[in-house]
Design a protein around this nucleic acid. Structure first.
Lengths: 178, 178
DNA sequence: GGATCCATGTAAGCAGTTACATGATTTA
DNA sequence: TAAATCATGTAACTGCTTACATGGATCC
C-alpha cells in the first residue's frame, strides 16, 4: 500500500514517467523506501485505473508515458496522512542473525559487525554529501520538512555506527581478559 | 525466509509449542522481528516437512505440539549466518508520510512527530526495564551478544526520540519568527 | 453446563522479489 | 547495421496480513 503513496508523493512534486520515478526512488525517496521497476509499473496502472493519476505519451520519447497526479489522488494521499496512525514495527534480519549466532560457539560476531559498520559509514557519507549541497538558510516550510527527513537518515546511520563501535569494544574486552 | 531462521533460533534456545513461540516473539525476539500465529504454524509445518525440526504431542496439554530443532536445522541456520551478506534496506512509511506532508500546506507535521515521540518513549521504557533485570556482570560470550542486541534496541529508540526533539525545535523556530 | 479463553488451523488477497521478454533508441 | 542500453511489460512465486473456523480446556 505504501508504494502507492510514495508514487503519489513523487508525482505531486513533479509529473514523471515510470523510468523517472525509478531514478528518483534511487535518490531521495529511496533512503526510506526502495522498490523495483516492476512494482512501479504495476502500481502506476492501478493508480490510473482508480483515477488517482493520468497519463499521456511523452513528447520527447515515444515509448514513455508521463504520469501526473489528479485531484482525486491528491485527496486520497491527504487523507492517508491525516488518518493513518500505524507505527512502523521494526523487522531487521541482522539482529536475528546476531541473536542466532549467540548459540554457535564456532562463529564469531566481529566480521558481521565490521561489515555492518562499513555499510553504515558508506551510507552516512552519501547523506552528508546531500546535506552539504542542499538546504541553504533560511528554510521555508517545505524545505524544513525535507531537511528533517534527511536529518533522520543522518542520525540513523550515525547511531548504527556508534552501536557497532560499542559492540567491538565489548567484544574486545571479552577476547582479551586481564 | 527470515521467519524460519527466527523460529529455528528460538527452538535452539528451548523446545516450544507454536503458542510458546508466539509468546516469545512478543518478548525479546519481537523487538526486531514480529509475526502472527498464522505465520508461525505454517512455518512450523514447512520446517518439519524439511526435516529441520521435529514435533511430539505435549505431555501437559493434549492439544499442543512441542517442536525441537534437529541437527539438519541447526546446520541450515549456521550456514545462513555464515553466508548471507544482505544488508537490510530501510523502508519506513513514516518518513514517506512526512515527505508527502511537505506538499500539503493545510497539514501540520507536529502531531505526527509528537505521536512518534510518545511511541518511542514507550518502547524505550520497556527496553530499560528489561536491561535492568537482565545481564549481571561478568557476562559470558552468549550474554554479551544478547546484551549487544538489547543495546541496539535502546539506542534506536533514544535516537528516534532525539530526532523528534530536534524536529520540534526546528518547527518551533519556524512558527515563531523573531 | 454455558461462556470464555487457549491452541491450532484454513483461506483469500495483497505486497514484494526474481526471472524473463520485447520493441525503441542510441552508440560504435 | 550490429550491439548495447532504455523503457516498459508479463509471469511465477514467496512472504505477510486479515478474516474466519474449530475443538479442547478452564472458569464461574
Amino acid at each position: 500500500m505504501s508504494l502507492a503513496y510514495a508514487i503519489l508523493t513523487a508525482l505531486t512534486e513533479e509529473p514523471s514517467s515510470g523510468a523517472d520515478l525509478l531514478k528518483r526512488f534511487d535518490k531521495s525517496i529511496g533512503y526510506f523506501w526502495n522498490c523495483t521497476h516492476q512494482q512501479i509499473y504495476r502500481e502506476l496502472k492501478q493508480l490510473e485505473g482508480n483515477g488517482y493519476i493520468s497519463s499521456e505519451i511523452s513528447t520527447q520519447k515515444s515509448t514513455s508515458f508521463i504520469y501526473r497526479i489528479e485531484p482525486k489522488g491528491s485527496e486520497w494521499l491527504n487523507e492517508w496522512i491525516e488518518t493513518d496512525k500505524t507505527q512502523t514495527a521494526t523487522r531487521d534480519p541482522f539482529f536475528l542473525k546476531l541473536r542466532a549466532l549467540a548459540n554457535f560457539e564456532n562463529l564469531s560476531p566481529e566480521p558481521l559487525i565490521l561489515e555492518k559498520k562499513r555499510h553504515h559509514e558508506d551510507m552516512l557519507k552519501i547523506y552528508q554529501q546531500i546535506a552539504q549541497k542542499a538546504f541553504k538558510e533560511p528554510l521555508n516550510r517545505n524545505q524544513t520538512i525535507k531537511k528533517m527527513v534527511l536529518q533522520a537518515g543522518l542520525r540513523r546511520e550515525q547511531s548504527n555506527i556508534d552501536w557497532c563501535n560499542e559492540c567491538l569494544e565489548m567484544l574486545a574486552k571479552f577476547d582479551t581478559p586481564k
